[in-house]
């Protein structure tokens, strides 16, 4: 089983990184957004109650999430292509186990997520972000970022298995983007003025993923934020895996 996961993951990573046109824009776009937003929204740090005087430090965690979302798109579109070309059927004819196939397929998204997390963190550090929780916190940031990428990546696989087409996967992405936008990505929840927006951001798990990462950067060790961040990320993985596993059985109805 481990060997099978490794083989499928290896192929997934190789395929992802052999398509620079696929992974370079998702890697650089969050950096561009980070560059413009961290400066364009710097004035927000003057608001009473804003938790830090560096908007870059505040905004950095959102880049991990955005990168993960892009990685999820790649994972989904790649799997949809495998379904479309019959490559999934080819794999189904080998002794590979469905669970190994699923976990291995996430490999590309996790690999890209890890690369993105390292790049974003490095860029943040280079431009003066101070990680309040030190080296241990930085490692935890990377871990949480990879978990988030895994969760979103698995969701992308589920969409691919459900729709069976790259266009089908992409057409669902505005919804996922919407989920990230209606969150505490740009302002802390207590500073969001519009009531409905604040309420949606409060029930949106994305807010807690961002806040978990953000706590490690700007507010030191915050057990509650970490618990919620890791908890929602793991829950996303569990739910997405469950959905994708069920859908895989339908898609790969081998006897």
């Amino acid at each position: 089983m481990t060997q099978q996961v490794w083989l499928i993951a290896q192929r997934s990573v190789v395929r992802t990184f052999r398509q620079p046109g696929t992974w370079i824009p998702p890697l650089t776009f969050p950096l561009m957004l980070m560059a413009v937003n961290s400066n364009g929204l710097r004035a927000a740090t003057h608001l009473p109650g804003f938790p830090t005087d560096s908007f870059l430090a505040f905004f950095l965690p959102f880049s991990f999430l955005q990168g993960a979302l892009f990685a999820s798109g790649i994972a989904g579109v790649d799997l949809a292509r495998d379904i479309d070309t019959g490559f999934l059927n080819r794999l189904a004819l080998t002794p590979v186990r469905g669970s190994a196939l699923l976990i291995g397929q996430i490999g590309g998204a996790v690999g890209l997520g890890a690369l993105q997390a390292c790049v974003y963190l490095s860029v943040g550090l280079i431009f003066g972000v101070h990680i309040d929780t030190g080296v241990a916190g930085a490692f935890l940031i990377l871990l949480l970022a990879v978990l988030i990428a895994t969760g979103w990546g698995t969701l992308g696989l589920w969409l691919a298995l459900r729709t069976g087409s790259g266009e089908g996967v992409q057409s669902q992405f505005p919804l996922l983007f919407f989920a990230t936008f209606i969150s505490s990505m740009n302002l802390p929840r207590n500073l969001i003025e519009v009531t409905w927006f604040r309420d949606v951001a409060t029930i949106n798990p994305v807010s807690y993923m961002i806040e978990g990462l953000r706590s490690l950067v700007i507010s030191g060790w915050d057990a509650q934020a970490l618990l919620l961040g890791f908890g929602f990320s793991l829950a996303l993985i569990a739910v997405s895996l469950g959905l994708a596993g069920r859908q895989l059985k339908v898609r790969m109805a081998r006897t």
């Binding site: 192929r11 395929r15 398509q19 019959g86 490559f87 080819r90 004819l93 080998t94 002794p95 081998r254």
Partner: peptide, 17 residues
């Protein structure tokens, strides 16, 4: 599956491998 080989209708290959 262990006894058979199959080349199905689509040349099911990964263009990047």
């Amino acid at each position: 599956r262990a006894a058979i080989g199959a080349a199905l209708q689509e040349a099911a290959l990964d263009p990047f491998l």
